[in-house]
């Protein structure tokens, strides 16, 4: 006994089961990320002065990651098209490329995460705030590289555009001086200290939640696609049509993951 329309389209709906299944699943995913986006907007518009830092993420890296994901989206649809053209070798090539792209994306993302987790925010007893990368830590002091200093009430990760431009100018003139020097801070001068993890403030919280959930989708999708690239591809010999459908369906999921990133990138990195 076989459930009908697992392979062939049902004539009146023009769809096979998994196709409608994945679209329904994606609809629920839209609501999932939609709810996260609304949370983002609500938290952002109700944020008080100094509670929502901007321009903290590395735009070039984010851009590269966007391009990687877009590339993977093309390769995954090309993989499907290759199967339609009966070209299994090409399919293997494109599908493999997709998995590699996914891995690159996750690697870059984890590098970015590490970068944030090692970035420390320190409130000094004198009411100033310093943030920078932790390079050394002893029981008496810590050392931050690339430190920036500003009044504590400006809020975590304060990056006024002016400060930015000054920094760029300084760099253009053969490197900014005080910015690049490491800063040693005695623990006794520190009132409060945290790193830029999700606990640092609401911006980081939503940043890590959104990208983390997205990364889980990337990893899940990559596992499925790696399976279809490897052991799962044996089905091509037995039932090419069903295998092509599977590639199409997993591809649809992958495009959705790409699509989410297309929105995540501007709202988290650029705005």
């Amino acid at each position: 006994m076989e459930v009908p329309y697992t392979v062939k389209n049902r004539p009146d709906t023009g769809l096979y089961n998994a196709k409608i299944g994945i679209w329904l699943f994606l609809a629920s995913e839209v609501m999932l990320f939609g709810a996260l986006f609304s949370s983002y907007i609500l938290l952002r518009v109700t944020a008080q002065e100094g509670e929502w830092p901007t321009e903290l993420l590395n735009v070039p890296i984010g851009t590269v990651n966007t391009l990687v994901l877009i590339l993977s989206s093309v390769t995954v649809v090309m993989a499907w098209a290759s199967l339609k053209l009966n070209n299994f070798k090409k399919f293997k090539f494109y599908q493999g490329l997709t998995v590699i792209c996914a891995m690159i994306f996750v690697m870059i993302k984890s590098y970015e995460y590490r970068d944030k987790f090692t970035h420390h925010d320190v409130i000094l007893t004198n009411g100033m705030r310093v943030d920078g990368h932790l390079v050394e830590e002893t029981s008496e002091y810590i050392v931050l590289s690339h430190p920036l200093e500003y009044p504590a009430e400006k809020g975590i990760g304060y990056r006024p555009t002016a400060l930015h431009e000054a920094e760029e100018e300084a760099n253009a003139h053969g490197g900014g001086h005080h910015h690049t020097e490491d800063r040693k801070i005695m623990l006794s001068d520190i009132e409060k200290r945290t790193n830029w993890g999700p606990w640092a403030n609401t911006y980081f919280a939503i940043y890590f939640t959104l990208t983390g959930l997205h990364a889980l989708h990337v990893i899940g999708g990559a596992l499925v696609m790696a399976y279809f690239w490897g052991p799962g591809s044996r089905m091509w010999k037995k039932n090419p049509e069903q295998f092509t459908n599977r590639i199409e369906v997993s591809g649809l999921f992958w495009h959705f993951v790409d699509l989410v990133w297309i929105f995540l990138f501007p709202i988290l990195y650029l705005l």
Binding site: S39, L43, G197, P198, W199, N201, T202, F204, A205, I206, F208, T209
Partner: peptide
């Protein structure tokens, strides 16, 4: 998000 508030110390 509530899970994050509990386990990751966020303040959603």
């Amino acid at each position: 998000l509530q899970l994050m508030d509990r386990v990751a110390g966020t303040s959603f």
